[in-house]
Design a protein around this nucleic acid. Sequence first.
DNA 1: GTAATACTTGGAGTTGGCTCCAGGTCAAGC
DNA 2: GCTTGACCTGGAGCCAACTCCAAGTATTAC
Lengths: 125, 125
Amino acid sequence: MTISEVSEKYGLSPDTLRYYEKAGLIPPVNRKENGIRDYTPEDCGWVEFIKCMRGAGLSIEVLTQYIALYAKGNRTLQKRKNLLVAERDRLQERIEQMQKTLERLNYKIAVYEERIVACEKKLLK
Amino acid sequence: MTISEVSEKYGLSPDTLRYYEKAGLIPPVNRKENGIRDYTPEDCGWVEFIKCMRGAGLSIEVLTQYIALYAKGNRTLQKRKNLLVAERDRLQERIEQMQKTLERLNYKIAVYEERIVACEKKLLK
DNA sequence: GTAATACTTGGAGTTGGCTCCAGGTCAAGC
DNA sequence: GCTTGACCTGGAGCCAACTCCAAGTATTAC
């Protein structure tokens, strides 16, 4: 699969895909003899994984660390798990905070609705 | 209340508080005759509100718009409500996406735990 | 064979959101 | 009356995460 096909498929620009690879956010992508990237399904899997994690707000730095550990093989299993647990906990906290803000917004919107109705009544008088 | 007290109270640096005001993220703060900021409880309320919204990821730009509408008074009620609804919807989507990612991480962590146990068993043989 | 198109690289530029700094004012303590 | 400390302003600097660009190469279409 070419870079533009992968770009299309995941909604990430070719520049971003190259940047992710250069930064070590995904393992090195398979190449054709001439040096042109030829994404295997596995490469695509990494792209999808990283897109998902970035979408949830995990930093480039921490994802780079994860990939670096992955590249070192089985002896980093525990470290990788610890990293994932730490990020999971941080994500959970962020979600809880956002959930509270969501409820606050809902309340605020409800108050606005009341005020708007009250305003309209006044005008009709 | 001085800027450093407000900074202390909400965990935002004085620089950030000044930046928020200059950017129109909070309405102009009350001043003493000599020009020094003297936050009223209402000013503090705005700081707290903006801190909460920024914490949930609402952009400076959209919050600035909200404050600008607020400054124009009652005739912007509907517009302000629309803005809040749009942001609420975006926030909800982000939360849902993050929730999915959280579950994915939990699954991944469970798989790691199994693999680590399997590895240990092998070593004990 | 040459023009167009899709890729390559290294590196510079951009954006959002702060964060820091220089230079100045003012009130309080000695 | 002079130092100290907290504040002020305008503007520069910084960081994360892209995004764009120039210069080069390879394949395809005619």
